[in-house]
Every structure is written in C-alpha cells, then in structure tokens.
Design a binder for these strands. Sequence first.
DNA 1: ACAGGAGTCAAAG
DNA 2: CTTTGACTCCTGT
Length: 154
Amino acid sequence: MEGSAKFGLWSVYIRWDSDNVVSRIRFVKQAVPGPVPLSLSQYLAGKKTSLSPLTSIHELDDTTFGRIYREVLAIPYGETRTYGEIAKIVGTGPRVVGMAMKRNMTPILIPCHRVVAVNGLGGYSPDISIKKDLLALEARVREKNSRKKPEQVI
DNA sequence: ACAGGAGTCAAAG
DNA sequence: CTTTGACTCCTGT
C-alpha cells in the first residue's frame, strides 16, 4: 500500500506492506493519493510519539550500518545525538554515520532527524527545513507532555 | 584501488 | 571570529 500525508509545505510519501514493514518513506512536493498508516498521521499531527507497529525494511544486523540504525532507533522522542556520539558507540567515524543517514530509506521511522552535528543541525535531504520542523514538532510535544507531569522532568 | 561524504577537532590566520 | 588541514573509514564504482 502507498500514499502520502501532508507535513507543512511537503508531503510524506510512504509505502508499506500488510506486515507493517515499511519499504520506503520519502519527502515529496506533490501529494500521492492513497492511505497512510494511522500511526504516521498521528505522529505528524503531534498526537503520538511512537511509530509502532511500523518497522523499517532496513536490516539491523551487526554490519556498521546495521549498528548505526539500531542506535539511531534508540534515540528517544524529542532528544538528539550528534554524529560523533553515534560513531563512538558504534566504533566508527562521524562521516560514516552521515553516510548511513543519507542512505536511510525510511526517514522518520529511523529518526535520522534526531542526529545533528556537534555545532549545528547537520544536513538533511531533500531539505534541511524538514529536519528543523520535525525537531520543532517533537520539542513542542515533549514540552506539552512534561507540563502535565513536572516531576518527571530530568 | 580510489574518491568522497548529512563530521570533528585543533591550530592558525 | 573564520578558515584550513589531518583524521577517519565505509561504500559504490
């Protein structure tokens, strides 16, 4: 199945199968007719902080890229890590982490927007403003949720 | 083999 | 403050 959901000036195209395995997510300018998973539209609306039960087609094996994707998946909603931090955990260089992010077939699901440079945003395809907007959305939702339970703030 | 990245750090200008 | 260079190491060709 495939379709797209609006996100600001862009649309989020998604293709997935009946087992909730997502084979492609991509930002497009023109909407693609068709359904999207409920969890995605709720995430984009700031009503949900998890994309479950969706899973990515990417292998999370013990190759360098597999380990990188595993670490990126573990970054909590609303938080960020730097390329260098991920690289250190996985035991590789920061540029390799950037390379893995660029080749990520399922952005948002594997939250590469939460991986930033040590001194700024870092890059994002096809448009850096999408990364900024996703991080702003998560920060806003996280702020709203923490206001409900002040004690839970770290 | 080899070039080149969504990076990082330190040193120099 | 900005620029430059060394470092890194995996991937596609």
